[in-house]
Design a protein around this nucleic acid. Structure first.
Lengths: 226, 226
DNA sequence: CGCGTTCTTGAGCATGTTCAAGGCCAGTGG
DNA sequence: CCACTGGCCTTGAACATGCTCAAGAACGCG
């Protein structure tokens, strides 16, 4: 088993992108990398915030659980992405994160992370820009949920999935298997509605359903709906 | 007319709270303060991002305009709050801001603001925490829109309005006059629904409607609905 | 191959929106 | 001082949208 050194990591996480070699080495010394298999929980809503994490490899869904047990998927994340930064100034973690496939996750003790931020103005500035982008993203999301109808939100969700995970080389299908319930939790609707509209989109030759695999035929058609 | 010096400003903006006197003086030298009357636009969606602003005095609504001309109120802001930080890493301003009453607004050239951030790690760190909180807030908002029904969202909106603006000393009514359409744009529904549910809440003795003034009788009842 | 899970599909119900008519209120001008 | 006007608010009816429930089909994992 190869060691999970930052130096042989082929992702561009925020740290590798924006820190000098000395700081990357500092990070390398102070992280621990853990493997999660599909379905395992990486972060759990309500737990104390003790770490910031990066995805070394794998796909992850980040979600919140509402009053009536309904989940709401906040973000789909991929290799290189940061997780758990939402808990930064919070008492407890506001979201859960679950592996959608086998994942390698790097954990940084929150104190070490704060140390990097406080002593590394350039990194701190880039992190600020990152948060600003996240905020904008989230507010666009809120607006979508407030103003779009279900059909539009499902189209929007498919475009988002495409943007994050892209498509499988061989089959041209979305490079991730999500349940109808997962898609519903992104779009803010029910699994039945997802089923119905997916078939409607298939009727309209916008996409193709092969079991759980979805092949986007006309991405522009979906974007036009939004 | 008194000068709008930072030194005689009685608000706690992010700068006054987190910067040393020298930096506050720097800010003071590089800002300009402008008065807006009720209904005037302070920031306009789609305009180039050239400034970060703080509310020296007054109430402001921050909103985005959707495809079909529908507005979505992103945030209600009050004296001391920052505006326009949503445009930080954006090409154009993603939101508009309109004065809900006479306002004094301090404008900082974006370059000066970046200069403060880059040379003031403590401020930069606090700004990071601020963005993190904003992100959490926004994601709670998204979840609310995705999972609550209209009645719950209107209750939630009223609680938010109460939290930001509080109540008038004399009349105990919410210390802001918003149109039904404004409340609808917060809750993500129509003005008719707002009308109907406000009267329903009045029936239930949760609040009292005096024309456009709203008196919250049982805040806990509203919170319990959420 | 068998079993449990997920997906599909339709019907009925609940919720929410749109439209339209009328009321109220404040400001204006005669 | 009163009538007029325009804007906002209220209210109900009709319609559209979306959700729930239930039954059967398909899938996928051991």
């Amino acid at each position: 088993m190869p060691l999970s050194l930052c130096s042989n990591c082929d992702q561009s996480c925020l740290i590798k992108l924006n820190c000098s070699n000395e700081w990357i080495e500092f990070a390398n010394q102070h992280k621990r990398t853990v493997t999660f298999s599909k379905g395992q929980t990486i972060l759990h809503e309500g737990m104390p915030v003790d770490a910031v994490t990066f995805i070394r490899k794998g796909k992850v869904k980040v979600f919140k659980t509402g009053n009536h047990g309904k989940s709401h998927i906040v973000r789909l994340s991929n290799s290189g992405d940061m997780l758990g930064h939402r808990g930064f100034n919070q008492k407890v973690m506001p979201v859960s994160a679950v592996a959608l496939e086998t994942c390698k996750i790097c954990f940084f003790d929150i104190n070490n992370f704060v140390y990097i931020i406080k002593n590394n103005p350039e990194f701190s500035y880039k992190l600020l820009l990152f948060y600003s982008d996240e905020l904008n993203d989230s507010e666009v999301m809120t607006q979508n949920h407030a103003q779009m109808n279900v059909r539009e939100r499902i189209a929007d969700s498919l475009v988002r999935i495409f943007n994050v995970y892209g498509e499988c080389k061989n089959e041209k299908c979305l490079d991730i298997l999500l349940s109808r319930q997962d898609i519903a939790d992104i779009a803010g609707t029910t699994k039945e509605q997802v089923s119905k509209y997916l078939y409607e989109f298939q009727e309209e030759k916008t996409l193709l359903i092969k079991g759980k695999k979805i092949v986007i035929l006309e991405l522009d058609d979906l974007k036009r709906l939004i």
